[in-house]
């Protein structure tokens, strides 16, 4: 059985243009422990911090709720985790339309079949996906949708933001992993394939020297339901989801998995700097 062990260090720093006196936030930066992934250790350091509490949210993500009182001009979050990824034997019969279209499946996966603000796309775009997948079984349809998305969208950072909708990115023809994922979700859901958003990290260089930190960033990919379980697929990169992918959070779209959200007291602006470093440990 193949395994990979990593250390992930994710630092987010918020610099405010003036001192703020309080903030209440939630952090989703702790990798999951589940089949195929074990988080051996995870530390979240926050400066300054007054109080925190941890829980698992509706989607199973590890959340740290935090509160900072007292004047501060910057908030620094650093999540350092040691994660082991291992292969799982996943032999399953291929997905069928019958299974996916059954009342039971459609009902239980309702949340992952709905197109909401972030994943909604124009009629003609959705029709295009349907055409590309015409006559194909679910597995091949997924590939067809991913191909269509990769055909249309160019990977280009700096054009879109965390709040960009799939329809907006599609109109631009450019985006980052989040936009690729939202567009893919729109296509898959339109076809009746339940699909969800996965956020986490991707080790960019699987053959990196052990012990050598590699600069990386947050990554997002898709999982679709084949009638029995969830199958991962990475629409942004032309490669399958592998042991290089580390999952942190799941949801219907970006809103459910945002690594950091909350409010602060005051009307100062904030600047965000993010650094992600991944080190192969084995």
């Amino acid at each position: 059985m193949s395994t990979q062990r990593y250390r992930v260090s994710h630092t987010s720093t918020y610099d405010y243009t003036g001192p703020i006196s309080a903030s209440h936030n939630e952090v989703r930066m702790t990798p999951l422990t589940e089949e195929g992934q074990t988080t051996l250790e995870s530390r979240l350091r926050i400066r300054p911090l007054t109080w925190s509490n941890t829980y698992r949210d509706y989607f199973g993500t590890h959340v740290t709720a935090l509160e900072t009182s007292g004047f501060h001009e910057a908030l620094e979050l650093e999540a350092v985790s040691t994660v082991e990824r291992y292969d799982v034997d996943r032999e399953r019969p291929a997905a069928t339309w019958d299974a996916l279209r059954s009342g039971g499946c459609r009902d239980r996966c309702f949340e992952y079949l709905e197109l909401r603000r972030h994943t909604e796309l124009p009629e003609d775009v959705l029709a295009g996906f349907a055409q590309a997948a015409a006559g194909l079984d679910p597995t091949a349809s997924v590939a067809a949708v991913v191909d269509a998305v990769r055909d249309h969208l160019d990977y280009e950072p700096g054009v879109t933001q965390a709040t960009t909708l799939a329809s907006e990115a599609w109109a631009e023809g450019k985006g980052v992993c989040q936009d690729f994922v939202h567009a893919t979700l729109g296509g898959l859901r339109h076809l009746g394939i339940p699909a969800r958003y996965v956020s986490g990290y991707l080790m960019p260089d699987a053959d990196a020297t052990i012990g050598q930190p590699v600069t990386s960033e947050s990554h997002a990919w898709v999982e679709w339901f084949d009638g029995e379980g969830w199958v991962p697929v990475d629409p942004t990169n032309d490669r399958p989801v592998s042991l290089a992918h580390i999952a942190v959070a799941r949801g219907r779209d970006y809103e459910d998995v945002a690594p950091f959200k909350g409010v602060y007291l005051g009307d100062q602006d904030a600047d965000l700097t993010v650094t992600v470093m991944i080190t192969r440990l084995s």
Binding site: S23, A162, L272
Partner: peptide, 9 residues
């Protein structure tokens, strides 16, 4: 009275 501002995502 200050108001609360949403954090950057």
């Amino acid at each position: 009275e200050l108001s609360w501002t949403e954090e950057l995502r």
